[in-house]
Simulated scan of single mutants.
Amino acid sequence: MGKGNPVSRVVYVNGDFVREKEAKVSVFDRGFLFGDGVYEVCSVLDGKLIDKDAHLARLGRSLESLKMNCPASLEDITSIQRELIAKNGIVEGTIYLQVTRGVADRDFNFPNSVTPSLVIFTQKKNLLNDPIAGKGISVITLPDIRWRRRDIKTVMLLPASLAKQEALERGAGDAWLVEDGYVTEGSANNAYIVTMGGVIVTRQLTHSILHGITRKAVLKLAEQDGYEVEERAFTPGEACEAAEAFITSASSFVTPVVKINDRVLCNGIPGPVTSKLRRLYIEMARAEAE
């Protein structure tokens, strides 16, 4: 291979497809100044989008919750995503979409008559054969210091970043967040345990957690396969006494948790329930991606 910089990604910024080095947003964008924006991450398998309609529907709910307009139709957004996948040759990976309220002089009040900003980019990732999924992760528990509307997928991710960094520094793969004595969710994923009786337990849907798209799909698959599911809060102590634990997200699918704080689960290897759910989810995702 000759010398020189590799060809950079093509990204979408406010109506234009540009090379990533040329991609720019204003310093007065409210996403930059206030974290006044929302986002979605959709996985790509075989060059196709997984659960695109559900992700776009959640984007609409997030925008509505923040009284923010969408800068393009959902059909146009899908077209942009597919064009980026093609331009960047993404067979397996993710596509990130961010909408902010737009550009205006700095003022805490919402500006009038501004056009929302839209940024979309792709990332190549090994999703199907992720080595982490093969061995599982360890998690630590940390206080949940986030705001109370976690069901809105906002770009205000500093608490999640702090939690992930502390987990890294303590030799863990992620953090489970705890509020009022109960696990809410992971730093960027939904959290589950499997009881010794084989019941899958995960937090019920409220403002306290993100209403995960992968979560919904996995719970449906679990029930179809005959598993009992309980949507309720669980404590870190209950999690440490569980038979298995796992997380779900758009980019990690179903990933085993084999250690919680100092407690090793399932002899430190992915458990049978988790492994089966991951296989079922991947089969479903590949069959229904579009």
Rank of each mutant, 00 (worst) to 15 (best):
M68H: 08
N69W: 03
M68L: 04
C70L: 10
G93H: 03
R82T: 06
N69A: 09
M68G: 03
E83D: 13
S65Y: 07
T78M: 08
N69D: 09
E83V: 06
Q81W: 15
N88M: 11
K87F: 08
L84V: 14
L66Q: 04
G93T: 00
A86Y: 13
A86M: 06
K67V: 05
I77S: 09
E64W: 03
V91C: 01
K67R: 05
M68I: 01
K87V: 07
G89K: 13
E64H: 10
V91S: 02
K67T: 07
E92T: 00
S73Q: 10
I90Y: 08
C70E: 08
G89L: 10
E83N: 14
K87M: 15
E75D: 11
I90K: 07
S79M: 10
I90M: 07
G93Y: 06
A72T: 05
N69Y: 05
R82Q: 14
E92K: 02
C70T: 11
P71I: 04
Q81M: 15
R82K: 15
L66E: 07
E83K: 13
E92A: 00
E92S: 01
L74Q: 08
K67F: 06
I77F: 11
Q81G: 12
G89F: 10
E92P: 01
I77D: 05
M68D: 05
R82W: 06
Q81R: 13
S65T: 07
L66M: 07
N69S: 11
I77N: 10
M68T: 05
L74C: 02
I85F: 14
S73T: 15
S79P: 01
E64K: 12
E75K: 11
L74F: 10
E83C: 02
A86P: 01
D76Y: 08
G93M: 00
L66C: 01
L74S: 09
L84G: 08
L74W: 05
N69C: 04
P71W: 08
K67C: 02
C70W: 05
I85T: 02
C70M: 14
N69L: 05
E92V: 00
V91A: 01
I90E: 03
M68V: 01
I77L: 15
A86L: 04
L66S: 03
E83T: 09
C70A: 06
I80F: 09
I77H: 09
L84D: 06
A86Q: 12
L74I: 02
G93V: 01
I80S: 00
S73F: 08
S65C: 03
N88L: 07
T78A: 12
T78Q: 13
N88D: 08
Q81F: 14
Q81C: 15
T78H: 11
P71Y: 08
L74V: 03
N88F: 12
S79E: 14
S79T: 15
L66R: 06
S73A: 11
T78F: 04
V91G: 00
I80R: 03
G89V: 10
V91R: 11
A86R: 15
I80T: 01
G89I: 11
L66I: 04
P71E: 05
E92F: 02
I85W: 12
I85A: 05
E92H: 02
K87Q: 13
E83R: 12
C70Y: 04
E83P: 03
T78E: 12
N88V: 08
E64R: 11
A72W: 12
S73C: 05
G89E: 14
M68N: 12
S65I: 03
E75A: 14
C70G: 14
E83M: 06
R82D: 07
L74K: 10
K87H: 11
I90W: 14
